[in-house]
Nucleic acid binder design. Structure first.
Lengths: 182, 182
DNA sequence: CAATAATAAATGATCGTTCATTTAATTTCA
DNA sequence: TGAAATTAAATGAACGATCATTTATTATTG
């Protein structure tokens, strides 16, 4: 049931983890408490499924329309633009993710498979490193210095309500590129 | 009571927000439930005070031994080193902060005063901009591209247990500088 | 002894979860 | 086809446990 997922994401964003109960989710989703347990084993299972669903959506949006035959720089900018687009269009998905990923839950779940959802990023950075475009550093380091700051900036604008305009985004992309370029 | 703060921080890191109750905090701190209410109005007040305390500690550690008469680059590297030191020494403080700051609580609290704790950072970046060392971008942007990635890297090492050695840190500082330098 | 600090115990409310039952949809077969 | 039988989906009500918070009582201490 889609309504249960949506209610979960909305509530976690509105009132936080600690205050989000099954009763409140059920009420917001317009179903009975028991209905939730038809589709999900328990509360934590619901959270895990919601997390996986949201992460899948993010991966899908991040790489849509991406052509592996394009240049590294084209792919780089495409990924960043798609990511910003995702954050702005699915802001509740994104903020939900941020909250989950900073909680002890992922450690508890030990999900090794979610990294594979973002393989095109590793692919792009590896190619860039081979071509001598990027610094010879761990790809995680390249990601942290180029993609994560953009996400953080977009998040900031999401939270204070100010728009993240093209000029600011382009300035950010320049800084991302400067950080990782050889 | 210090034990109450420590228990709160530990529990939030171990089992997360949703599962951290007053009873569990009291038990871990070896006090009665009621004792917590002598020092704190309610659960949320306890969280807020813990948050402020931790943020204060972070600010204190971040700028200790910092001399405003030093060069911008020296201050820059000092701040980053201090920050990494803080993250590694007070890892539970840091992870607690990350969890709070990605929850809806700070928005609810509307704390405008906490930014002032980190004024030396703004000071340093402003000076650097005036001297033409840094790009003429919003200071928040400079922070997001230079300090935040280091924190993220340190956090990664904290979570997977691998050490964040000097060589990696120096490589990170180079990338930070490249990202923001004019 | 007075005052402060800490407590155990109890409060009603809400928690996650289960269960017996109803309603809706689908299949069976005369 | 159409009534009867079966399955599936959803529910309200209830469970014991735990929740945040309060009260009345007991230690502690100067």
């Amino acid at each position: 049931m889609e309504a249960i997922f949506d209610a979960t994401i909305q509530l976690v964003n509105e009132i936080g983890f600690a205050e989000t109960s099954i009763s409140k989710i059920a009420k917001k989703a317009n179903v009975s408490n028991a209905t939730i347990y038809i589709y999900h084993e328990n509360k934590e299972d619901l959270l895990l499924k919601t997390y996986l669903k949201v992460k899948g959506k993010m991966s899908e949006k991040m790489f849509q329309g991406m052509d592996e035959s394009r240049t590294v720089k084209e792919r780089f900018e495409s990924i960043i633009h798609n990511f910003v687009e995702f954050i702005q269009t699915y802001k509740e998905y994104f903020l939900f993710l941020e909250q989950i990923m900073n909680s002890p839950l992922p450690q508890k779940w030990c999900l090794d498979d979610t990294a594979s959802l973002f393989q095109p990023i590793f692919e792009m950075f590896d190619t860039g490193k081979r071509q001598g475009l990027f610094k010879q550093e761990d790809v995680r380091m390249l990601i942290v210095y180029s993609i994560l700051p953009v996400a953080e900036l977009a998040k900031g604008h999401l939270k204070d309500g100010t728009p993240f305009n093209d000029q600011q985004l382009n300035a950010a992309i320049v800084m991302s590129w400067d950080a990782i370029k050889a």
